[in-house]
Design a protein around this nucleic acid. Sequence first.
DNA 1: GTAAACGATAGATATTTATCTATGATATAT
DNA 2: ATATATCATAGATAAATATCTATCGTTTAC
Lengths: 320, 320
Amino acid sequence: MKHATLRQLKVFESVARNLSYTRAAEELHLTQPTVSIQLKQLTDIVGFPLLEQIGKRIFLTELGKELLKVARATFDNFSRFEMLVSDIKGVKAGKLRVTVITTAKYFVPRLLGSFYKRYPGIEVFLTVTNRERVLQRLANNEDDLYILGQPPEHMDVHAEMFLENPLVVVAACDHPLAGQTGIPIGRIAEEPFLMREQGSGTRLSAQRFFGDRGMQLKIRMELGSNEAIKLAVAGGLGIAVISAHTLALERNSEELSILDVEGFPIRRQWYLAYPAGKQLTVVSSAFRDFLKEESRAVANRYLAGIPGFLPVMSNTDLPE
Amino acid sequence: MKHATLRQLKVFESVARNLSYTRAAEELHLTQPTVSIQLKQLTDIVGFPLLEQIGKRIFLTELGKELLKVARATFDNFSRFEMLVSDIKGVKAGKLRVTVITTAKYFVPRLLGSFYKRYPGIEVFLTVTNRERVLQRLANNEDDLYILGQPPEHMDVHAEMFLENPLVVVAACDHPLAGQTGIPIGRIAEEPFLMREQGSGTRLSAQRFFGDRGMQLKIRMELGSNEAIKLAVAGGLGIAVISAHTLALERNSEELSILDVEGFPIRRQWYLAYPAGKQLTVVSSAFRDFLKEESRAVANRYLAGIPGFLPVMSNTDLPE
DNA sequence: GTAAACGATAGATATTTATCTATGATATAT
DNA sequence: ATATATCATAGATAAATATCTATCGTTTAC
């Protein structure tokens, strides 16, 4: 049976439907002998007659009926698959699996949301996890795209920057430094700091920033989440360095204030990454384009107005 | 997609399962380049990658997973079909459609019953109808086999005799002729006869029998069924010529008696028929053999003991 | 850094295949 | 009885297919 060809099945289906070799030949734009031969081959492979001729009329044998079912099921499967292919081509179907580093959760869901709205046929899966797990998933090719704060080294990865990720100093609104301009770095370094645990990219960047200037931060507390840090800062327990995106929702609240510190914001970027050899799916590719396009607007909307921050990207879209 | 080959699907399935071209090549007893090429062709046909290679590892793309489903479904269908073929070959599956003329209903069901018991996997369909419909179904190739009392002429049919069908004269047990031996035909012809309607094969035979001898029967009543005739005969309304098989169940009853009339029983036969060009299915062929074999036993069991009847068939099986 | 493993590619070849035209056999219709 | 329609078969041919060996470029592992 594995020696049968789809061609034979196709011809058989036509003959079975028309109950005529000649008619089938016409339908398939073949000569009648060609149909005869294809059918003979198929019959030889099966070992039993599929058709019988009584007088001039042609009938399907029991086996013929069964094979017809098989043939039709097969062609149905194929055409369903072909439809899927063309849907995927038109981004009307497909899956998008994105894994992002924890800090990115403040703006990625919003973007995925609008992306999904533009392509309602697709399925979106978002995983939010720490850097280590992101890199692990990247290495295991578990997702389509990855978003993180610094591109992995020692790994063959294609990474591209798509959005600024400025780190700012925040304090409670009633903090003495709130509202001041051009605060010297040395002044800030004296304040008690609230920090994420060791290994946090933000913490690393902040410590390097002060370290490079010969200062060491006084860390009062380590907290497990950005939310906790913001609450603690608002509660007056200290000041903190956090990603401006983290403030997206609180920007206009009365509780936190971004301090205008010399040298701040620390410039960091968001990167979109995927394994070097990987050919992006149509959906992934569409999301990549979408991400570049949208992130500019996001940058202008949410990052403008940060003291000392100047977007590098072209400002065709200005904030309202 | 119609240009894909089953070979390509087979190779793809193996690669997808092993996630390795080399392993797949080993499994299929091919060289690795062959696998590469087959897969490349399939990928070109689909138009999108089915597999992706990240570093040294191979992954299925979303489309690859879908195609794998299609491939597996296809092969499953084929192997199910192959199982059906081999079941049919071993008469463990299949259908048997038999159409018989009304009179044959007295012994065919019994035979079909034992046939079914021997081959429990098959499905049996029995149609009982009049001669006209039998011939019609034969012409339309609606069934596998046909049983009738005289082979059709003016029709390209293969027919073979398989059983004697003696026509006997029956009377009520208390009829004056009951028990007498060597009753002259002339004596019988005086009796009032009960007959099936015009067109009945039995009636035709009986009338021809007496006509050939220059006699004409006195027909008292026409009745629509053999059962009605038997009841009427038992009730003393007259005598009748009927097939001995019709008496199969009543043979030992006290109501009817077979008369020992000169020249009786009229010899008729049962024929098995099917369209000339038709190649019998395995099941049909098995039933044909079964029929020949069993009908001898039936003949001996039910037809022996009919006054004046001498089976033509060899009597290796003697009646108990 | 070197070796081993893996997949891609090139080039060659024998086989199979798909197809045609021409013709023959058979059955139905006129 | 003849013509027509239908399917089977034979013979020919161009195309494709399936496969191999040999070799190359990468990636991983030691």
